[in-house]
Design a protein around this nucleic acid. Sequence first.
DNA 1: CTTTGGGGTATAT
DNA 2: ATATACCCCAAAG
Length: 270
Amino acid sequence: MGNPKQKWTAEEEEALRAGIAKHGTGKWKNIQKDPEFNHLLHSRSNIDLKDKWRNMSVSANGQGPREKSRTPKPKCNTDSPAIPLPVPQAHVPSPPVAVDSDMQMDDGSRCLLDGKTASKYNAMIYEALSTLKDPNGSSTSAIVCFIEKRHEVPQNFRRQLTARLRRLVAQEKLEKVQNCYRLRREVLSGTKGPIPKPKEIWPRVSSPFNSYLGETLEEAAIAAAYKVAEAENKSFVAAEAVKEAERVSKMAEETEAFLQLAKEVHVGKW
DNA sequence: CTTTGGGGTATAT
DNA sequence: ATATACCCCAAAG
């Protein structure tokens, strides 16, 4: 009934993010009241902000639309962990703290995803897209499918993936057409060729693990190479200080992804 | 009262 | 179907 449902506009999302960056996550009321954003968020309540944040960034915690613990849907149960639970490595080691003492990451990126996890997912996305070179891009389902075949993936992965995809698209790293995503090629060549250090980045991988890695390894390398190129590219931009730390964060994220990839390549598989 | 974390549902694609 | 907006509830501050 009186809810035609109005999608959040980019302006609003931006305001929300800016607000979060400014006040921190959770200060919804504060953000909403901030004269700086009030003109855009006047129609939204703190709850709306919270929900919106949950829906957008969060897409990291629910299976389908959102975890439906309800309706257990017994269906024979019998948990036969042929495909064990996700539990992708334990990030955030049990020992509290240790690293990342600065809790200042409310930049609208993770918060719910550890940088590690996010990076990993990004890496997977790149891997998938690099491998399924779909001229027209791959659909979310295809990507999920692909990734599920190689990595153990949490049930809620789809959600996280779409969130990542969105961000990547927003950053213009991916192109989205309809429901498909494809890598965005940046013709960085041409014109001046400062070429940011194309030195060897890989410690030469000579592991016997190439058994099943083979292509994957190459693809991963390619994806990682992109990552590096983009990261360096980004650092130039960052050097000019576009304005946000978001870029920097992103860069860090990508760099991490690259490092992670390198690690995987090097060790084969943890 | 605000924050926070969920559940539930409606609606848009 | 899936993603997203929005509502509602209850606990903890």
